[in-house]
Write a protein that binds this DNA or RNA. Structure first.
Length: 553
RNA sequence: UGGGGUGUCGCCAAGCGGUAAGGCACCAGGUUUUGAUCCUGGCAUGCGGAGGUUCGAAUCCUCCCACCCCAGCCA
């Protein structure tokens, strides 16, 4: 892993802990709930947790926080494992599950009851909310708060045995209903849910809440630094309270960092799901989705995503990160590593009238302008070729560096040509260009000293192949689509996907393997679609366009 | 109006009492058979605000302001 050592407040804490001897080995964990797909925000968390373990010669567990069977599934578990691996990380040992600690957690619940620290409460959800008080007013004690230990033990056992209906009873910690921290107002430890669990089946009808489970899971696994996002900060006193009141085998500590909020995107599971459900995108792995699987299909690389996470840093402030930074990371990676090729998106035929009709000249082009190890590719040149319609104008000002009637242009990796005439139909639409080659310009400037102003890409009409090309742009046209409740649906970019059914690609590109990355010169970075691409029917997705500083003249 | 946080360039982010790193973006040049890459230069007398301590403050103190999180039997 080439991740540079992190230098942030978490590393500072870890270094101090290592130096003081509080911990001898750093153990972190990435604890997703298997109720959805991983997105760019999770990628940051993964990068932080695995990165810190790696940088300190420690370990990082992958633990599914599966305490709420209603929303979870095995399918999500498998997808998450695949995403973590794809990002380039390997967890320590076997995958862990909170559910495999259910018996231990229950035993600890009994322990709290025995010590007078927890009680069974009969309040309904509505009543409980009312008893809880508000942000500014203290709550009131539950009428069941002073039940005897014996009675609580009996009730808890019967909850576990399935004697009560869902919602009829909960187990709560006895802390302080007047605490200014809402999380300390007798939080719920167990609730009754008579649904099968994807891991434990019908073994349980009561399930622990996040608060009662997380810290203890960390203790069981010997997690030294339990890193989560800022919104859990208020839960830390509770996290510590459980560890203080239970005979846990270790003493983990919780630390929080600021969530990643990229501009022009939404990352809440609810909103992403809405995009999928309403058909705005084709699925969770649609190339426009900020999910790990979506970015993968779009053509982002694990290295670029990791690099991006390093670039943005890890702090306790939460701001909006400009997606331009993510775009920079992927361009930077692909510029260095992607093989070059030529693809004409908006074809305009050019007939080279001086070139023999049946002649096929096999030229050679570098796989990469400054990396010989990426080899060369054969490039057939013929009398009829396609160029992009945007690369020709009948007349243009001096800033236009492409083909202009009566002027010259360099065909990338081939000859310099000069446009002689425009062929139009009755409606005045351009059908083709007639041009001629300038002899001796293969790898050489024109002998007459009249150098072309620009270079354009092209594909042989006779030897090229057609391909479907999907041009993706940002899903949202608003910098902060997440602002407001449902407003994000109003900011969807109607042009986020343009499908070109018949683009022309040079023959070498038909050999692309699914998920292979390319730079289509002068256009951008593209990837052969993970699912739809084949040699028989090539399909490429635009990952990101090339940086374009050309201001039209 | 209770509690917990955060405020350094358009964005991210170093800095931890000694006189504002870096990256992204942007702007201006140079190189270039990709208007890409690459290279060079520019870009905070200022660190949310106001006071104060100090020879000296983004860094310490006081007060104020803005924004974020918390009232799921979600995580």
């Amino acid at each position: 892993m080439e991740d540079p050592p992190a230098n942030n407040f978490l590393q500072t804490i870890i270094s101090a802990d290592l130096a003081s001897g509080r911990v001898s080995t750093v153990v972190t964990r990435f604890p997703p709930e298997p109720n959805g797909y991983l997105h760019i925000g999770h990628a940051k968390s993964i990068s932080v947790n695995f990165g810190l373990a790696l940088a300190n010669n420690g370990r990082c567990n992958l633990r599914f926080d599966d305490t709420n069977p209603e929303k979870e599934s095995q399918a999500f578990i498998e997808a998450i494992e695949a995403d973590v691996r794809w990002l380039g990380y390997e967890w320590d040992g076997e995958v862990r599950f909170a559910s495999s600690y259910f018996q231990q957690l229950y035993d600890w619940a009994v322990y709290l009851v025995e010590h007078g620290d927890a009680y069974v409460c009969d309040l309904t959800a509505d009543e409980a909310r009312e008893y809880r008080g508000t942000l500014t007013a203290p709550g009131r004690n539950s009428p069941n708060r002073e039940r005897t230990v014996a009675e609580n033990l009996d009730l808890l056992e019967r909850m576990k045995a399935g004697e009560f209906d869902e919602g009829a009873k909960v187990l709560r910690a006895k802390i302080d209903m007047a605490s200014p921290n809402m999380n300390m107002r007798d939080p719920i430890l167990y609730r009754i849910r008579k649904v099968a669990h994807h891991q434990t089946g019908d073994a349980w009808v009561i399930y622990p809440t996040y608060d009662f489970a997380h810290g203890q899971e960390d203790a069981i696994e010997g997690i030294t630094h339990s890193i989560c996002t800022l919104e859990f900060e208020d839960h830390r006193p509770l996290y510590d309270w459980f560890l203080d009141h239970l005979p846990v085998p270790a003493r983990p500590r919780q630390y929080e960092f600021g969530r990643l909020n990229p501009s022009y995107t939404v990352t809440s599971k609810r909103k992403l799901k809405q995009l999928v459900d309403q058909g705005v995108v084709s699925g969770w792995d649609d190339p426009r989705m900020p999910t790990v699987s979506g970015m993968r299909r779009r053509g982002y690389t694990p290295a670029a995503i990791r690099r991006f996470c390093d670039m943005i840093g890890t702090t306790r402030s939460d701001g909006v990160v400009d997606v331009a930074m993510l775009e920079f990371a992927i361009r930077d990676d692909l510029n260095e590593n992607a093989t070059r090729g030529m693809c004409v998106l908006n074809p305009l035929k050019v007939v080279l009238t001086d070139y023999p009709v049946d002649r096929v000249e096999t030229l050679s082009a570098a796989g990469h302008p400054n990396r010989d190890d990426l080899g060369e590719r054969a490039l057939p040149f013929t009398r009829e070729i396609y160029i992009d319609a945007d690369d020709f104008r009948e007349e243009a000002n001096k800033k236009y560096k492409r083909l202009v009637l009566g002027k010259r242009v360099r065909l990338r990796n081939a000859y310099v040509i000069e446009a002689d005439e425009v062929v139009k139909n009755d409606n005045g639409e351009i059908l083709a260009i007639h041009a001629h080659t300038i002899p001796g310009t293969l790898g050489e400037d024109p002998a007459d000293g009249i150098k072309p102003k620009g270079v354009i890409h092209w594909v042989s009409a006779a030897q090229g192949r057609t391909a479907e090309v999907r041009l993706y742009e940002r899903l949202f046209s608003h910098e902060a689509p997440d602002k407001g409740d449902n407003a994000f649906m109003d900011h969807i970019n109607p042009a986020s996907l343009t499908i070109i059914k018949q683009a022309w690609i040079e023959p070498a590109l038909a050999d692309a393997q699914p998920e292979q990355h390319f730079q289509f010169e002068r256009e951008g970075y593209f990837v052969a679609d993970r699912y739809d691409h084949s040699a028989a029917k090539p399909v490429f997705n635009r990952t990101i366009g090339l940086r374009d500083t050309w201001t039209d003249g």
